[in-house]
């Protein structure tokens, strides 16, 4: 069974590399956010498989924490872009007032 865990881990790691490539290449910033989000899911899987590989499946708590927390960042991104126009307008006003 060990080597199957190992192969799964390697596949997940290679997927992580692909996600990092997408994160570095862009081209839009949303591709990078997508890469972060995907990387987070892959980390959940990686930790879950590795905790079986090392024979300590009680460490699944970590994967659970990730699964719960990982998407908060994307909400922050959505809020960030939602408020961008208003912020830009405020900035323009500030520049004009100076």
């Amino acid at each position: 069974m060990e080597w199957i865990y190992f192969v799964t881990c390697i596949a997940i790691l290679i997927t992580m590399v692909l996600a990092v490539v997408r994160g570095l290449a862009g081209p839009t910033i949303f591709d990078r956010v997508l890469a972060v989000n995907m990387f987070g899911t892959k980390t959940v899987l990686f930790i879950a498989v590795i905790s079986f590989l090392t024979g300590r499946p009680d460490f699944l708590d970590l994967a659970l924490a990730y699964a719960l927390i990982n998407f908060i960042g994307v909400f922050a991104v959505l809020l960030f872009f939602q408020s961008r126009e208003v912020r830009r307008a405020a900035e323009a006003e500030r520049e004009a007032g100076k």
């Binding site: 994160g23 570095l24 956010v33 890469a35 990387f39 930790i47 905790s51 960042g73």
Partner: peptide
């Protein structure tokens, strides 16, 4: 965003 990836890699590495 990239530092988000950075910290994810770091956490996986800590676990390893």
């Amino acid at each position: 965003m990239l530092s988000g990836i950075f910290s994810l890699i770091m956490a996986a590495n800590f676990f390893v």
